[in-house]
């Protein structure tokens, strides 16, 4: 769950070799890795020709230009809004449905197969249908993002409730807990780590589907810029857009990790569970 380079006071879980990673020198290592990346990038750019791969410097200049004239920030704002809207709606729908499916076994068993079917269908195949119904605007994009993010959250929530600890449930029952109390005090907190894992998977899928939606429907946002720059061989600004997407992805994942750690504090107290 935690990459070895995280700046967090966790007990080290795995034995590892080499110098110990501390808070300070991990950032030095990260910077070093970035420099290596820049050098390799520069070398590749020089070798394959600058029409295909711009040099780091050209990309930097393009970044300054596209950011200062507002092209990329405006597009990013557009994309983030679509992404968040679809994602939030997905979470609002998926978590309660997953909880209901887990809480009422009959409902869960009934819907399970359809959920799996929908999860297995490539979501891109729905896009023509969505366009027919909703056109090319925001609604269509949000629905594409929603469809991408909803299934992993739902499936994880459901699995989390199903995996609730029978022994803890019996303990609660022997203390006189009602079924609703068992659900609230045992099954729900037990499912929380699963729900958060689902939210993380859902977040990356939401971002992917944002770009997919922007490429297939009205060309807007970062996906739209990718398409415009790509089709006109303006590779430097194209790279700027790619990096912008990467940065958004990292921010999204990091904020979910913070949430995860806060919710699941008990899991990090020791490598031993229970």
């Amino acid at each position: 769950m935690s990459s070895p380079g995280e700046a967090h006071p966790l007990p080290q879980r795995r034995p590892h070799w080499g110098p110990r990673l501390s808070h300070v020198n991990i950032n030095v290592w990260r910077l070093l890795a970035f420099l290596v990346f820049l050098v390799v990038w520069w070398a590749v750019a020089k070798m394959v020709g600058q029409n295909f791969v711009p040099t780091p410097l050209e990309t930097w200049q393009a970044a300054i230009q596209t950011y200062s004239n507002g092209t990329v920030p405006r597009a990013a704002m557009d994309s983030i809004l679509v992404c968040l809207a679809g994602y939030v709606v997905a979470a609002i729908v998926a978590i309660p449905v997953g909880l209901l499916m887990g809480g009422f076994r009959v409902l869960g068993s009934t819907l399970e197969i359809y959920v799996d079917a929908l999860a297995a269908t490539p979501r891109v195949s729905f896009i023509p249908l969505i366009i027919v119904f909703l056109g090319l605007g925001y609604e269509a994009k949000i629905v594409v993002v929603f469809l991408g993010a909803v299934m992993p959250i739902l499936i994880n929530t459901y699995a989390g409730v199903l995996n609730s600890d029978g022994e803890l449930i019996e303990m609660a029952r022997s203390a006189g807990a009602k079924e609703s109390q068992i659900f609230r005090t045992i099954m729900l907190p037990g499912a929380l780590p699963y729900i958060i894992a689902g939210l993380r998977v859902g977040a990356s899928l939401a971002l992917i589907n944002t770009v997919v939606a922007e490429l297939y429907t009205a060309v807007k946002g970062l996906g739209g810029l990718l398409s415009i720059y790509g089709n006109t061989f303006r590779m430097a600004p194209y790279f700027v857009v790619v990096f912008t997407l990467a940065i958004i992805g990292v921010c999204l994942m990091q904020s979910l990790k913070v949430l995860e750690r806060r919710m699941g504090r008990w899991r990090y107290n020791s490598s031993e569970r229970n």
Binding site: E167, L168, E170, M171, R173, S174, A175, G176, T185, I186, P189, G190, L192, G264, W266, R267, R273, N274
Partner: peptide, 20 residues
């Protein structure tokens, strides 16, 4: 008997809620 607070139950596996 009905389960409830007039009886206490101690299990072999301690059954503590790890998030509390």
């Amino acid at each position: 008997p009905v389960p409830g607070t007039h009886m206490g139950f101690v299990f072999q596996s301690f059954r503590l809620l790890p998030w509390r």
